[in-house]
């Protein structure tokens, strides 16, 4: 008989691996990718291809030639970053802007901090904010390219619902007047079909489908998304009730501006979100609150990315002070 293997207990392992978790996130993103390809056609395909390929190749090159460590692109985390980055950009973003975004996401945000699990900020969100600040014109060019399905209308050709509303409010209109002027801003329209905005926001339903998949596969717990969406709903609801002539309603706020994409896929990023349940609730509420505040009172029409980024910075603190409930604690 050959030599026996000896190790400390436990002697079995669940089949959970980092790779499987990341693969599940990719699968969950699949409906959103599909809708965005169908709505925006070749532009969306190019966007996703450039995003994923550049992220994966950059991670490989950095690990192989600069850091000279084991290459871990197999864990699919770079691919997830690539897809998320692509879905967070306007469908018409030029390929070189996407590439710069990948350099920021992988090269600066992820690898300089030590690779997977070590970064403080969400790579895709940071890259998006970096691009938004660096290329404001390109990043707010919401021109809708020709897609394979032509649901919806081009009535608002190129502007996101939030920017339409923001511009409208500036000129003194009430939200109600804006909505009557733009019939495409109805909730039904936003739930099912293309609305102006990032590639990933084409359909809220596709994102919710992905959310359900993540919950079923137990990749994430519903805590953070529910906290984010709930807070956006409640806070914008309060503002709406106080003054419906200058603030938009809660449902509109949830369905636009990447709240769903951010709450489901970006805020729940393992690495940059708190680990305990209580921490996750505080984190989610923080994102929701900041999002609404930036939207209603800030210069930018939308604030999910900034809110997530700000709350990312708070995560180490939350991890330190919001500890899980302990068994038998007095």
């Amino acid at each position: 008989m050959r030599n026996l293997i000896i190790s400390p207990s436990p002697h079995i392992h669940s089949d959970l691996t980092t790779r499987r978790l990341m693969r599940d996130v990719l699968i969950a993103l699949f409906p959103a990718m599909l809708v965005s390809i169908l709505s925006y056609g070749f532009s969306a395909v190019r966007l996703l291809m450039v995003g994923v390929l550049s992220c994966v190749i950059l991670e490989y090159l950095i690990q192989k030639f600069i850091l000279k460590t084991a290459v871990t692109v197999n864990d699919c985390s770079a691919a997830v970053t690539g897809v998320l980055l692509a879905l967070n950009l306007p469908p018409c973003t030029p390929w070189w802007v996407v590439f710069i975004g990948s350099i920021v996401a992988i090269g600066i945000v992820k690898m300089t901090f030590g690779g997977l699990g070590q970064n403080i900020f969400n790579p895709a969100i940071t890259a998006r904010v970096f691009l938004l600040v660096s290329f404001p014109v390109i990043m707010t060019d919401w021109t809708i390219p020709q897609g394979w399905i032509s649901a919806g209308t081009d009535a608002f050709s190129g502007a996101t619902p939030l920017s339409i509303v923001k511009e409208g409010l500036k000129t003194g209109l009430t939200p109600e007047q804006i909505f009557t002027a733009h019939p495409s801003l109805s909730c039904g329209q936003m739930l099912f079909a293309r609305i102006g905005g990032s590639a990933g926001e084409a359909s809220a339903l596709a994102l919710i489908l992905g959310f359900i998949y993540l919950l079923v596969r137990k990749v994430i717990k519903p805590t953070i998304p529910v906290a984010v969406i709930g807070t956006v709903f409640v806070v914008s609801g309060i503002f709406y009730l106080i003054d419906s002539s200058s603030f938009t309603g809660p449902v509109f706020n949830i369905l636009t501006g990447g709240v769903l994409l951010g709450a489901i896929f970006m805020a729940t990023d393992y690495v940059t979100s708190p680990m305990s349940c209580s921490g996750q609730i505080v984190y989610g509420i923080g994102i929701g609150l900041l999002t609404v505040l930036i939207r209603f009172f800030g210069a930018y029409p939308e604030g999910v990315s900034f809110a997530i980024l700000i709350m990312n910075a708070v995560v180490p603190l939350l991890n330190k002070y919001m500890r899980p409930a302990r068994f038998g604690a007095k």
Partner: peptide, 28 residues
Amino acid sequence: TEEQTVRKPESNCIRCGKCIDACPMGLE
């Protein structure tokens, strides 16, 4: 058998918090 028990190589902690969720004593 070997397939059932050999430990797989360790990789980076992704801070998923699954260990916290699994811990029956509420530790980290």
